[in-house]
């Protein structure tokens, strides 16, 4: 555990909670892509199956349970409790175009051809592109509420901090996981355009176009 890893995890947690609270407080999920949230729930489910097979630390176990729980709570709020406010007409990204190729890639490029390892690899690849339905929705409607942009910003910061974490671990621990690093770089790049808009527009005019 290093400072980049810890702040990355906390930034990730902040993003997840910001989104949950926003939906809960406004009683609305307008502008939020339910499809991205389904993908994140799938990412956490397939990645954290090792909760059942191995214990790493109390921190690790607690964070995994919180991430999975919040992901399903968010999906529940969007598709059940506040379904009437869900903007399905603008959430039109075809997620099978992500899930199917990512599933194929996880079968072909992995560290070990075993069910848990393939599911872990699938989750790593899927996480790198899971935000695309949300970014697609924003590009389609041409706007996002400020709080939604804070959510995306925290998610992007989390990814960037994980890159620094890997650089740290490479130098100080000799740790090097090519699958996680390549997927992490791809994921961070997807947020770069958004970062630029966030810094130049959101903080200036509080409205994001």
């Amino acid at each position: 555990m290093n400072v980049f890893r810890l702040t990355g995890d906390l930034s990730h947690l902040a993003a997840i909670i910001i989104l949950l609270l926003k939906i809960w407080k406004t009683r609305s999920c307008a502008g939020i892509s339910g499809k991205s949230q389904i993908l994140f729930a799938l990412v956490f489910t397939t990645r954290y199956l090792d909760l059942l097979t191995s214990f790493i630390s109390l921190y690790n176990t607690c964070m995994k349970i919180i991430y999975v729980g919040c992901a399903y709570a968010t999906v529940y709020l969007i598709y059940a409790k506040f379904r009437a406010t869900y903007d399905g007409n603008h959430d039109t990204f075809r997620i099978e175009f992500l899930v199917v190729p990512v599933g194929g890639l996880a079968f072909l490029v992995n560290h070990d051809f075993s069910p848990l390892e393939i599911l872990w690899t699938f989750s790593i690849y899927l996480e790198s592109v899971a935000i695309l339905p949300q970014l697609f929705m924003i590009s389609k409607t041409g706007e996002a509420e400020t709080i939604t942009t804070h959510y995306l910003f925290c998610l992007g910061v989390y990814r960037a901090l994980y890159l620094f974490n890997w650089i740290w671990r490479f130098y100080f621990e000799g740790f090097f996981d090519m699958i996680a690093i390549v997927a992490g770089v791809v994921q961070t790049i997807l947020y770069c355009d958004f970062f630029y808009l966030y810094v130049t527009k959101v903080n200036a005019v509080q409205r994001f176009q």
């Binding site: 890893r5 995890d9 990730h12 090792d50 191995s54 790493i56 630390s57 690790n60 964070m63 995994k64 991430y67 560290h111 070990d112 075993s114 390892e117 872990w120 994980y162 974490n165 000799g174 740790f175 090097f176 996981d177 996680a180």
Partner: peptide, 10 residues
């Protein structure tokens, strides 16, 4: 490195 072993990252 710990390929295929315990994964401590989230």
């Amino acid at each position: 490195c710990s390929f295929g072993e315990e994964k401590d990252e989230l």
